[in-house]
């Protein structure tokens, strides 16, 4: 964690004059993540919620690729390739589930499903 913070401090605040630095990428990544999170928490449509999770996923991917480039280490990008693969498979699964759920209730509202409450 300390290392991460040091890295952030070294990278400095994005400057208009300079080319894109690590900070730009991290900022984009954080914004994407937060947008995804807010979308996930506020929307009730299952498909939108699923898209928001994808958004958070890709935000994490951007951060990984950025750090990988910054450290000149390809394992970050390699990991992102795997993440993308898994996300694709997961998307197929999730959309199939959403279709099934829709068939049951004729609605995409997530609040229709509360059967697992205590």
């Amino acid at each position: 964690m300390i290392q991460v913070l040091q890295t952030l401090a070294q990278s400095g605040f994005p400057d208009r004059m300079h080319a894109a630095t690590l900070s730009h990428f991290l900022l984009v990544s954080a914004l994407m993540f937060v947008i995804g999170l807010i979308g996930f928490l506020t929307r009730r449509n299952l498909i939108i919620m699923f898209l928001c999770t994808e958004l958070m996923f890709q935000a994490a991917g951007i951060a990984l690729v950025a750090f990988g480039r910054y450290h000149l280490d390809f394992s970050g990008q390699t990991f992102v390739i795997f993440v993308l693969t898994v996300a694709a498979a997961e998307a197929a699964m999730a959309l199939a589930l959403v279709v099934l759920l829709f068939r049951r209730r004729e609605s995409l509202n997530a609040e229709e499903w509360k059967e697992l409450r205590g």
């Binding site: 996930f40 928490l41 997530a110 609040e111 499903w113 509360k114 059967e115 697992l116 409450r117 205590g118």
Partner: peptide, 18 residues
């Protein structure tokens, strides 16, 4: 005592996680 925490609402869990 702990039962109300399991509301069954997806957003409740998501908020809790976040």
């Amino acid at each position: 005592l702990l039962r109300p925490s399991q509301s069954g609402e997806l957003h409740g869990y998501a908020l809790g996680m976040a």
